[in-house]
Simulated scan of single mutants.
Amino acid sequence: MSEEIQSFSIEYLEPCAYLYVEVFNSKPWNEQWSFNTARTRLFEITNTPGFVGFIFKQDELLGFLAGYCKQGQKSKSFYLEEICVRPDNQRQKIGTKLLDKLMQTLTSIEVKSVYLLTNKDGQAEAFYTKHGYQRKQEMIFMTKKF
């Protein structure tokens, strides 16, 4: 099996939406995505200015990541909006390879930081911590429902 990482292009939108539903409707997230809502979400992300994304294939699509660059007052940052790996292929370094490709790309375009949101104290936080991400104590996530 040959593995490859490619840029996330529009041709991967639907396969990635199916993967998104498979991953996030399963444990530990147990969300309720439909194919249409997942496709819309990914379409919006891919059409955000500064979009950067990659897919991981090994004969078939096994994972992807997507986000976008944002200009700050002194430097650019990258918001890692989504990373997704097929459940039965997790813990096989696919996420690590996607992050490595992302970091190479961001370094080449002079992005200075990456940020993301994830559930605390779970498998995802442990993954990001392993790769050098830290909780920001001076920042909080706030929401208002209506």
Rank of each mutant, 00 (worst) to 15 (best):
S2D: 10
E3S: 14
I5D: 05
I10S: 10
I10V: 10
I10K: 12
E11V: 05
L13H: 06
E14F: 08
C16D: 03
Y18R: 07
V23P: 00
F24K: 07
F24I: 02
K27N: 08
P28V: 11
P28A: 15
W29P: 05
N30A: 10
Q32I: 03
S34A: 12
F35N: 11
N36P: 00
N36H: 15
A38R: 03
R39F: 12
T40V: 07
T40E: 15
R41A: 11
F43V: 00
E44F: 08
I45Y: 15
I45L: 15
T46L: 14
N47P: 00
P49Y: 06
G50F: 10
V52H: 04
G53R: 05
F54L: 08
F56G: 07
K57T: 03
Q58C: 13
Q58T: 06
D59C: 08
E60F: 09
L62N: 12
G63W: 04
G63R: 07
F64V: 02
F64L: 00
A66E: 01
C69P: 05
K70V: 15
Q73G: 00
Q73A: 06
S75N: 15
K76E: 12
K76D: 12
S77C: 13
F78Q: 05
Y79K: 06
L80Q: 05
E81A: 14
I83G: 03
I83H: 00
C84K: 01
C84D: 00
V85D: 01
V85I: 13
V85H: 04
V85L: 08
P87C: 01
P87W: 02
D88S: 15
Q90T: 05
Q90G: 04
Q90R: 13
R91V: 06
K93M: 13
K93C: 06
I94T: 07
G95I: 13
G95L: 08
T96Q: 14
K97F: 08
K97P: 06
L99G: 07
K101D: 04
L102W: 04
L102I: 08
L102A: 02
Q104N: 15
T105P: 02
T105D: 09
L106V: 09
T107D: 14
I109P: 02
E110M: 05
E110C: 07
V111L: 01
K112Y: 09
K112V: 10
Y115N: 10
L116W: 02
L116N: 06
L116G: 04
N119W: 06
K120M: 10
G122E: 03
G122F: 01
Q123G: 01
Q123S: 03
A124C: 03
F127E: 01
Y128L: 09
Y128W: 14
K130C: 01
H131C: 07
Y133G: 04
Y133P: 07
Q134F: 11
Q134H: 13
R135V: 15
R135S: 14
K136W: 02
K136P: 03
Q137I: 01
Q137V: 03
Q137C: 03
E138H: 12
I140H: 10
I140Y: 09
M142A: 12
M142L: 15
T143R: 11
T143G: 12
K144N: 11
K145A: 08
K145E: 05
K145R: 07
F146M: 07
F146N: 08
F146C: 02
